[in-house]
Design a protein around this nucleic acid. Sequence first.
RNA 1: GAGGAAUAUCAGGCAAUCGCGACUUUGAAAAAAGUUGAGGAAAGUCCGGACACCAAAGAGCAGCGUGACAGGUAACGCCUGCCCGGAGUAAUCCGCGAGAAAGUGUCAUAGAAACGAAAACGGCGUAAAAGAUUUUUAUAAAUCUUCGCAAAGGUGGAAAGGCGAGGUAAGAGCUCACCGGCUGAGUGGCAACAUUCAGGACUGAUAAACCUCACGCGGUGCAAUGUCAGAUAGGUUCGUGCAGACUCUGCUCGACGAGCGAACGGGUUGACAGCUGGAGUCGGUCGGCGACGAUCGAUCAAGAUAAAUGAUUGCCCAAUGACAGAAUCCGGCUUAUCGAUAUUCCUCUGAC
RNA 2: CGGGGCAUAGCGCAGUUUGGUAGCGCACCUCGCUUGGGACGAGGGGGUCGAGUGUUCAAAUCACUCUGCUCCGA
Length: 119
Amino acid sequence: MYELPKKIILKNKFAFHRVYSKGRSYANQSLIIHVLKNNDIKGRIGFAVGKKVGNAVVRNRIKRLLRETYRLNRLEIQPNVSMILIARKSLKNAKLNDVIRDFKDICRKAKILIGSQGR
RNA sequence: GAGGAAUAUCAGGCAAUCGCGACUUUGAAAAAAGUUGAGGAAAGUCCGGACACCAAAGAGCAGCGUGACAGGUAACGCCUGCCCGGAGUAAUCCGCGAGAAAGUGUCAUAGAAACGAAAACGGCGUAAAAGAUUUUUAUAAAUCUUCGCAAAGGUGGAAAGGCGAGGUAAGAGCUCACCGGCUGAGUGGCAACAUUCAGGACUGAUAAACCUCACGCGGUGCAAUGUCAGAUAGGUUCGUGCAGACUCUGCUCGACGAGCGAACGGGUUGACAGCUGGAGUCGGUCGGCGACGAUCGAUCAAGAUAAAUGAUUGCCCAAUGACAGAAUCCGGCUUAUCGAUAUUCCUCUGAC
RNA sequence: CGGGGCAUAGCGCAGUUUGGUAGCGCACCUCGCUUGGGACGAGGGGGUCGAGUGUUCAAAUCACUCUGCUCCGA
């Protein structure tokens, strides 16, 4: 149900590059999202936190919060969507509720929630 | 009670639910259950080792590092003790702390002069000796020069032992007392050194400038290295090489003995071992001032590879809890850090 | 994981090796030239030398520690 096994997470350089080059991107104050709708590889997720955001502890914590956010809200997202979430500087001291709010906001922008029809 | 000094320890805890890495068991598989899962600095990469490979792991020079003395250690640039110097009323803290009389360099500006025991500037002195001039009959007197001296120069970070007294033509460790320093001898100490006595032609600073002395250092690093599987084409051109290339840090010797380098054009981006049982952790006894050593007993506590620890709720505390994330492993150093606790010691004040 | 380099005026750079005065170009300000502007000529201002500690009489320079940026090898 709310699991997030390792197979789902994007790790390969080429897979990242595929989403970056073929997908669409959206952004708000705290997140950047790259979205690729594809029926071959479904429901993959990648995380990226740049070096400018903070030191290793901060970056690890943001990645964990993003992973938790995706885990809890995975069923509300259309199943054939692969995405990459990139954190921006304002997430440095964020809590989980803030991240969930920003995530839902950006998903609405990208129109990948279940019930919203993509054009 | 107040103010300090040193050392050591901790780095929120417990429970429930969901989620992640590794291992074990069950299972055909999916999966389930159980166990376990970041630090005192994991950081910076500043040192030292283990381990692996590189001619035989070799020699010399160069180069680099360390620097009171004695010890500890696998080793160290670390630690302990002690000496010396400095800071503090004290507990205590700080110190790249060898050699400047082996040699070379530098010491701007200022100043007479910045290392040579000098005298060009300015100065002190005519006692002795020589010369010149003036006065004088002459003796003699005065001035100047040669000469003697280094006390006093508006300097400077630093002026050649300091200060006082004697001494002298003027002066000078020339002599004396005190202080400092050097040399020699004695005593104490393993030693650095301390202390006592005696004696002097008592001649800067800089070695985190070159250098000298003593000691140490072969190079590259787990993406080391080994095994398995797989891919493409071991291809073309140029240069170089048995007159010895390449390789073993730079050079020389010595060793090996046939390929090597560059450009173009391609292929791969797997798996396993190394990978955590080790100079390991905890406790006791003995030796040592101590660092530490010896011995006995108990115990096994991360091992990932786009890289695992998070979230929510409840309770408690010192109450929004700092700095911060293992990547081959250890011993240190340095840097960051909200706070809390324990022990020992010092100073001041008050009471008995 | 390992090894280098850089930081100096608003910008780009010298000076560091061999320690004593911080300089060059562009930019800025003032004046002249021009009907006016540009160009040109003359003059001027502006720098805790990335931060700290030490060595030295004296540190941009020498030594050590830290910060930021950047490059290279596998």
